[in-house]
């Protein structure tokens, strides 16, 4: 990955991609959203725990790094979600059935995506993009909830010029305890 600053045009292009994605997800256009995903997508929400603070690392940033709290796909721990395109397709298919009861009536979501930072580009032109989100969630008959987190994405170039496909997404959730109705959303 390179570390040079993205050009204003590239930054604008990528921000627009994220705004479009947010509009589709909050508009419940999950089938359209799937078209933004790469066939080899890996969609992950790591588990997030409370590890021991290692005293030997005191004085260093690594002592309290977020990474220490995560149980991701490459760990021997337990992620909350670890999905490929087949799983995402199953979720999307389910979303458009009347007996998907946890979404009937469907939730009302609105997400603000910000802090979009292009961290690098590999030789094949895939971009490493990190961003932050706040998502407001409300369902009739239920309370409202605020989800907050970080996305660590890889966007791969699509076939058309200027198009990108989501190839990797790791969602770092910032909750202390999981007191939400579901983490089955497309975050």
């Amino acid at each position: 990955m390179s570390t040079t600053l993205a050009s204003p045009e590239r930054q604008y292009e990528i921000e627009q991609w994220y705004y479009r994605e947010a509009r589709m997800l909050d508009g419940r256009q999950y089938q359209s959203w799937l078209a933004l995903c790469h066939p080899e997508i890996r969609y992950v929400i790591p588990g997030r725990g409370n590890p021991q603070v290692p005293n030997r690392e005191r004085g260093k940033e690594d002592m309290i790094s977020i990474e220490r709290e995560l149980e991701g796909v490459d760990s021997d721990g337990l992620p909350i979600r670890d999905e490929t395109m087949a799983y995402l397709m199953l979720r999307v298919e389910r979303s458009f059935k009347a007996n998907a009861w946890s979404e009937n009536p469907p939730a009302r979501t609105r997400r603000i995506v910000g802090n979009i930072e292009i961290l690098g580009e590999d030789d094949a032109g895939a971009l490493s993009v990190w961003s932050a989100f706040h998502l407001h969630y409300a369902r009739p008959g239920s309370a409202s909830f605020l989800y907050a987190g970080q996305r660590r994405d890889v966007l791969a170039p699509g076939e058309q010029a200027g198009a990108y496909l989501l190839k990797n997404r790791e969602v770092i959730l910032d909750m202390a305890e999981v007191a939400y109705p579901t983490l089955g959303l497309f975050l």
């Binding site: 337990l78 992620p79 909350i80 979600r81 670890d82 009861w101 109705p181 579901t182």
Partner: peptide
């Protein structure tokens, strides 16, 4: 993980 737990396709129901 895919079917059960707080984000499980099944267990959310």
């Amino acid at each position: 993980t895919a079917f059960f737990g707080p984000g499980g396709i099944l267990e959310q129901e």
